[in-house]
Write a protein that binds this DNA or RNA. Structure first.
Lengths: 112, 112
DNA sequence: TTGCCATAGTTCCAAAACGAAACTTAGGGA
DNA sequence: TCCCTAAGTTTCGTTTTGGAACTATGGCAA
């Protein structure tokens, strides 16, 4: 079974994961909760490649979790902000944060 | 940057995701919380391939989230149970469940 | 004692996703 | 005119995934 087919699974956890349960998506959302909204900011903060970021942002917008917003006419530039639906993922991020603080101590410093 | 390098990230969310933030891992844990513990049960419940399941179980055991437990001598058989560390992921699963129930309605029934 | 069954994996291979780096597009400003 | 910013897109080699078949170990029944 492919992972994408989970979107219609009987289990709400599986349905949620069909959107946010891959390698980087929740990290983008973390950045949103930290107040970041632009492409280059996500790149710098998360360390993911532009390629993947672009694809994930597209999916998050389609899913109604982020909104793509024109912030500069002139050279047209867009940024990304959480919708209400996206905001409601805050508790999930909090629980993951709490678990990480308790159970995943840092071994050595990294740049990102 | 590779996703596995997140284990030493400054951010506890990132560190957590370096273990549970890939395509099937949280679904295995969901099954554990539902009381499942055996290889064939995970296969049937989640729909993932044996290949991936074996790899994920190994990582979860290494991470101290599951314990591999001999449940039958005779033909040596092992099952997998949550450690205390694993149990503490319950709140995360709950928040993902709640979000899914609210924001990801089912469109059509599926077998799994 | 032979042969089938259950259960937990492993192996193989093709297809899809990822990662790194270069390239593109659309103005702004010196 | 030329370089800069910022949001992507393209290309291509590597890694991961998905599907299916295969292996290992012993129980049990004929």
């Amino acid at each position: 079974m492919k992972w994408t087919e989970l979107s219609d699974n009987w289990c709400p956890v599986a349905r949620t994961l069909s959107i946010v349960g891959d390698r980087w998506t929740l990290l983008i959302l973390r950045d949103c909760f930290l107040g970041l909204s632009r492409f280059e900011q996500f790149i710098e903060s998360s360390g993911m490649t532009r390629h993947i970021l672009a694809e994930r942002l597209k999916r998050l917008v389609e899913a109604g979790i982020l909104e793509r917003r024109l912030y500069s006419d002139g050279p047209k530039r867009y940024d990304y902000v959480l919708t209400d639906k996206g905001q409601e993922l805050a508790p999930a991020l909090m629980t993951l944060k709490d678990w990480g603080k308790k159970h995943m101590p840092v071994r050595r410093a990294t740049s990102a």
